[in-house]
Design a protein around this nucleic acid. Sequence first.
RNA 1: AGGGGCGUCGCCAAGCGGUAAGGCACCGGAUUUUGAUUCCGGCAUUCCCAGGUUCGAUCCCUGGCGCCCCUGCCA
Length: 561
Amino acid sequence: MSQPTVQLAANFIRNIIDEDLASGKHQSVITRFPPEPNGYLHIGHAKSICLNFGLAAHYQGRCHLRFDDTNPVKEEQEYIDAIKTDVRWLGFDWGEHEYHASDYFETLYGYAEKLVEKGLAYVCDLSPEEMREYRGTLTEPGRDSPYRSRSREENLDLLRRMRAGEFADGSRVLRARIDMASANVNLRDPVLYRILRATHPRTGTAWCIYPMYDFAHGQSDSIERITHSLCTLEFQDHRPLYDWLCEALEIYHPRQIEFSRLNLTYTVMSKRRLLELVNEKHVSGWDDPRMPTLSGMRRRGFTASAIRTFCERIGIGKSDSVIDLSVLEDCVREDLDQTAPRAMGVLRPLKVTLTNYPEGQSEEFTAASHPKDPAMGTRAIPFSRDLYVDRDDFMDDPPSKFFRLGPGREVRLRYGYIIRCDEVIKDRASGEVIELRCSYDPETGGGALPEGRKKVKGIIHWVSAAHAVPVEVRLYDRLLRVADPSAEKGRDYREFLNDASLEVLSQALVEPSLVEAAPGAAFQFERLGYFCVDSKDSRPGRMVFNRSVTLRDTWAKMVGD
RNA sequence: AGGGGCGUCGCCAAGCGGUAAGGCACCGGAUUUUGAUUCCGGCAUUCCCAGGUUCGAUCCCUGGCGCCCCUGCCA
């Protein structure tokens, strides 16, 4: 697999790398994408993936895929597999460089003994509650643990027995001996190892002690000779510890650089919240098309290319940001406009009978699959007396600017004839419009416009009743009703879930050329939006289409959306 | 006086002492058998505020103000 070309806009991290290369500090660039396999990847991860792999590609270095698998109680093989699938789908290749922090458990343990031998770590018997007490607060210094002054010999003995499984879970920890009075809480003798009897997806029950993030991440970076270790802003306070450990251990010292994480309007991005949405059944799963997960977006019909473009456009910085969903949607439209074949589909069918078209007769029109790309070919569209158009394209009492059907109004059927609405049939009881009786102009087939005939402004899509394929269409909308739930102080994002985020249309009809469409295939339903065949629920006899994104709609905007 | 960050157009974001890139959004207009696409044009005399240094400051200094993160044996 070749790396996709990733355009990299200027950003402060590139500036740092340029300086490091110019000064000779580094000859090449090695980055890494370090997910914890405790959930599915989301678009925020895509930002990190594109950054890390993009930088590696740009500087002709390399990027490792490394699983930060140091907490077996939360991590699962299912997530490891899904993460690899998603990174590959996004278009990146880590080659031989797949690593796991668990690959380094033995080395990491050796580092722990080294720290003990240098008098820089000790085994502490404080309970979690006691430790919290001793830690102090943000404004008050902590106090030294009574176990802080154990001898090296005793610490080494205790550490070895911790590893050997002689102590109960949670009864002791290994701590770095730094400074209980530090203004940076992370430096108040942070825990390095805890006792935890859990089956690890890769190491099974080989270990009963596991290193903490702070004692695994930087060390793994060091082992892999990562030059620039990029992470999100919340780790800034950990950098002094990252640096302290590299110095104390006297090992290769990568540079940690932090950037701001991605937030998108109308959704949530943390794995914790996404897990909640899944567990509480607000969505159908991690790959629900409303989820900001990569698997959800893929199923929604967003392309890897669009997501890469998005990650390039939003840039990299250090200020808290919330990116407008429209940026992502624009990337999706930009990509799909070029690649998606056109087709016609009617979402909410309204019957149209052409009173002057012979019963039993039919004909075919040839339609281009793409208005600008002849190479995409054409398809045949059957036409007959009985048609369906979308209910949205008819108004009983339309304003003059409404260029569609209404009593006495003329409109062109896309690729077909101009028709005029002669009669509106309503249900006697409900008053609902149930049929339009129209007449067609035989001189106007396939877009023809006879001399002297005035052009009609409106063009609408349609399907032939006898030829159309009944399908299910799922319309998706924003997950939340508010743009930025974090701005709603003291309120839970679940209060803002959008009840209308999924609308299932079971009566939809599509043109017959779509029966062959494969799962995942994307189309533009003309005048409506981009749709793809659902990769999970679509069946040959009952196809399911997901709306990826609507087309821009200036009419909807005019009438006030 | 707890520590660490951030503050350039509605949302992102370049900019690194020489007189405010770009994208999205928004507003016009042209083309159009998708009210789509495409195409033209508009959109920060101003960079959180106040002082200072300088011939000149968004970029340097000082002092404010606002927002975010940190007290897991999570990552």
